[in-house]
Every structure is written in C-alpha cells, then in structure tokens.
C-alpha cells in the first residue's frame, strides 16, 4: 500500500463511513466539511502505517473517530442544536417525510450522548461486534458491553421521555 491511487480508491469506497462519523460529531455543514477533509488528510498521513492485519474499515473507523474527537476538543463547541445534515436531507429526498422524521429523531437521540458514547453508538448501529468495537476504540470487550448497556438504558429513558 502507499500510492495515491490506492488511497483514493479506499476513500472513495468507504466515503460513507467518513460521512457517518462526521455527521454524529458536528452540527453544521461547514464543520462537517472541515472535519471530513481533516479525516481524509489524517487517513493519508497514516496510510503507509496500515498493515493488512486489520480490516481497512476497522482502521478507518479508528483514525476517523480519533480525528473527530481531537477536532471536537480543538473547536470546543458544545452541541447546541440538532439540524439534519444536508447531504442526508438530499439522501432523504427520494424517501418520504416519515423517513426524514425518523432520521431527525435518530440524530436527536445520538446527539444527546457524550463523545465516547456517540462513537460506540455509531459502531453499534453499524452492526459491529463487541470485539470489533473494542479493537476500534481501544476499550476491552467487557468494558464495551458495560458501556453499551448503559447507552441502551440512556436511550430507553430518552425515548420514554420524548
């Protein structure tokens, strides 16, 4: 690995993954674009260090989430409102209003979680196993299990209240 074409191919193939990470960690389009570019840049920086021992998507999640968390610390902006990401609005153009409402509700629930919980929730929604989540986040699998149970409880509570 290591040349520009390989890199661009990987990013093109997995751009949805980056979009999803940026959408849960930012609140407006400008921030989202900025974070997207930063993640792509960081992925390029570390592209040579990627060894085929791990799945490329696992490695990409790790870099993307670390970059997003660092970006969040730097910008020091706390989430205030929960607008729906623009590209997701266009994605939902082809769908009905019900889907749009469900999407808004989904983001509303995610944005109520803290930084680490957001990441865990994203990976959970992506259908990752506890072992995979542990490998991406650096937590141990039992810790992942405990934290996810707490997130589920928190969500349940939020859903009951809303």
């Amino acid at each position: 690995m290591g040349n520009a074409k390989d890199f661009a191919d990987v990013i093109r193939k997995h751009q949805g993954l980056i979009y999803k990470v940026t959408s849960i960690y930012t609140n407006n389009e400008q921030d989202r674009e900025d974070l997207f570019q930063e993640i792509v840049y960081q992925l390029w920086k570390y592209f040579d260090t990627f060894r085929n021992e791990a799945k490329i998507s696992t490695w990409m999640y790790r870099v993307a989430m670390n970059t997003a968390i660092t970006h969040l610390k730097k910008s020091k902006r706390s989430p205030s409102s929960v607008p729906l990401p623009e590209y997701l609005l266009s994605a939902s153009d082809t769908k009905d209003e019900v889907f749009e409402e469900r999407l808004k509700s989904l983001y509303l629930h995610i944005k109520q979680l803290n930084t680490l919980e957001k990441g865990l929730m994203l990976l959970l929604l992506e259908g990752k196993s506890y072992k995979e989540i542990a490998s991406i986040t650096g937590l141990n699998p039992s810790n992942v299990g405990t934290r996810i149970s707490r997130i589920k409880q928190k969500l349940k509570q939020n859903m009951t209240n809303s």
Binding site: Y19, K20, L88, S92, L106, L125, E126, G127
Partner: peptide
Amino acid sequence: ELRATWSEMSQEL
C-alpha cells in the same frame, strides 16, 4: 427502529 433507519440511511449514502 434506530438500527433500521441507520441501515436505510447507509444504503442511501
């Protein structure tokens, strides 16, 4: 339901 919406959104992306 959250999972289903997420999956639908992923397909759109």
